[in-house]
Amino acid sequence: MASLLFLLVASFGIVLALRVLARWTAVSASPFEVEPWLSGHPPTEHALSRYHARWYTASVVFLAFDVEMLFMYPWAIVVGHLGPGAVVEMFGFLLMLLLAVAWARREGAFRWA
């Protein structure tokens, strides 16, 4: 853990050093404030008000499905010596989920809607 912490600090330190260095090397350190590029149109609304994600249903399916990873990793390291029972149990579980995914697909959960 200590070395992980050290690396975290060191890598952010490098980033910070680059930022400080850029203040010296740049033609001017004061940021140039611009409007976002919109082919010359002036922005009239905030950026987020013009777009809507179309994959809400897919994200719900994703959140439900990814719970399975909680069980998958501890299972992965013991399946070798637990034997066929563990394989059957986990893949039965996954098959059930994949059937739910197939059902969700028929409902159009993975299409833009």
Binding site: V60, L63, A64, M96, L97, W103, A104, E107, A109
Partner: peptide
């Protein structure tokens, strides 16, 4: 989890 997927998609 299956129930969550089904209910979530339906809703």
């Amino acid at each position: 989890m299956v129930a969550t997927i089904v209910a979530g998609v339906v809703l």
